[in-house]
Amino acid sequence: MTTPPMPPAPPPNRPVACSLLSGFFVLRRCGRPAAGACPSCGRPVCPEHFGSDGLCPECSRQVADSAYHRSWTYGYRRTHYENTPTVYGSSTWYPSFDQNDRDAFEPGGGDWAAASGDFAGGSEWDGSDGDAGGDWDSDGDGLVDS
């Protein structure tokens, strides 16, 4: 007597991924399984990115002014790109990047694909909050509703 094959086990819940951006010129999200949340900013962080002070590199950058420190690159990256507009004579170039622009570095990823962040279910984009007005043309007259 043969036993019927067992159905495949359901996939385990996908672990929360580390949300830090790595890289200097070529940015990308770390993506390793997170070990916990940073006590300061609350973002999920993997063991690789947790500093000795228990904070993520973005939060502990105040102490990482030496290039020998693991998290030095994060603080220096921010400083360098904040100073870039003075080099290019534009004060709007770097500040024009937001989280969605950074998501563009992730193929198929980002807040849209994960339905998280500002675009999670129930936000004003899907109209599910019952707000028929807002800034969008809900009645089809070609004018923005007030």
Binding site: T84, D101, A104, G109, A113
Partner: peptide, 19 residues
């Protein structure tokens, strides 16, 4: 880093689903 970074401004990031 400014001189090197200029080379990376010439290759725009790949368009994702968001864009």
């Amino acid at each position: 880093l400014t001189v090197t970074g200029e080379l990376f401004r010439w290759t725009p990031p790949r368009a994702s689903a968001a864009t």
